[in-house]
Simulated scan of single mutants.
Amino acid sequence: MSKIWLSSQERAEREILPLNLALYHAARDYPGGGKAIAAVYGLPATTLQHRLNPNADTHRLTIDDLEHVLEATRDPRILDSLLSLVPGAHWFEYQESTNECSEQQLMESVAVLSTQVGNLLTRISEHRRDGTYHDHEVAELEKLRCQLIGAVQGVLVCAQRFDGEVRHG
């Protein structure tokens, strides 16, 4: 089997990226890019863009830059990257719009979970065909695993809020 070379954008969609690349892609995909993020927070646009450039060794992102990009973009790739540094840590976005969960919302959460399971199993099957897991395939499966755990968390939260039938004993 020939080696598949993913473009930067394909890799960003299929793998958990290193933090500098996650921040770069998040800012690049934000409407107006890094300049818009800089404008929101009153930062020098050129400085932030240089710091976000993954090829610029002379400029480094600060923790404040990380905070600004994450807050502005709310990009899940950044959280994926940060939590990949802590084995076993996962995140999911808790929607606080309501304290109740309808039967429809619960069914939608289960459907998302089912889709995530299907995606993971499909990709495992495809990657096993040649009998070898390549690095980019392992990275893709890791991202799908994290998404699956997030879907499980979503079902659990919705189930706990379903019709207020949570009993604490």
Rank of each mutant, 00 (worst) to 15 (best):
N119G: 02
G131H: 06
E140Q: 12
L120G: 01
H134Y: 11
W91G: 00
S102P: 03
F92A: 09
A111K: 12
E137T: 04
A89Q: 07
A89E: 04
D135K: 08
H127M: 04
L83F: 15
V138F: 06
H136K: 08
Y133P: 00
E142S: 10
Q116C: 08
E142M: 11
E142Y: 02
Q147I: 03
A139D: 14
Q116H: 14
D135Q: 12
L83P: 04
E108G: 04
H127N: 05
H136Y: 15
Q147P: 03
H90W: 10
V112C: 04
A139F: 09
L121E: 09
S125G: 14
S97T: 12
K143W: 05
N119Q: 08
C146H: 14
T98P: 00
N119V: 02
S114Q: 12
C101H: 03
V110M: 10
H134D: 14
W91L: 07
R145Q: 14
L144C: 06
L144F: 02
Q147R: 13
Y94G: 01
Q95V: 06
V117C: 08
A89C: 07
N119R: 14
R123T: 13
R129Q: 13
V86Q: 09
H134S: 12
A89G: 05
Y94L: 15
S102T: 15
S102Y: 05
E108D: 15
E100K: 11
R129E: 14
V112F: 02
W91E: 00
H90M: 02
Q95P: 00
F92R: 05
S97Y: 10
R129G: 01
N99P: 09
L121C: 06
L85P: 00
V117W: 11
Q95G: 04
L120F: 14
R128S: 13
Q95W: 04
Y133A: 05
V110P: 02
H90I: 05
Q95H: 08
V110S: 03
L113I: 01
E137V: 01
E142T: 12
L148A: 00
R123P: 00
Q95N: 14
F92E: 02
A89P: 07
D130V: 01
N99D: 14
N99V: 10
H134G: 05
T132V: 14
G118H: 06
I124G: 01
K143E: 06
R128H: 10
R123W: 02
H90V: 09
H134N: 11
T98S: 15
E142L: 09
H134R: 15
E137A: 04
E96W: 07
N119E: 13
H127D: 06
V138I: 13
Y133M: 11
H136T: 11
H90T: 08
V112N: 06
E100C: 02
A89H: 09
Q95L: 05
A111E: 13
Q116I: 00
V138E: 09
L82T: 03
L113V: 01
C101S: 08
M107D: 10
G118R: 09
L113M: 03
E137N: 04
L85H: 13
V117H: 09
H127Q: 04
R129S: 07
L144W: 03
Q104E: 15
R145P: 00
S84P: 00
D135Y: 05
V86N: 04
H127W: 04
T122R: 14
E142P: 00
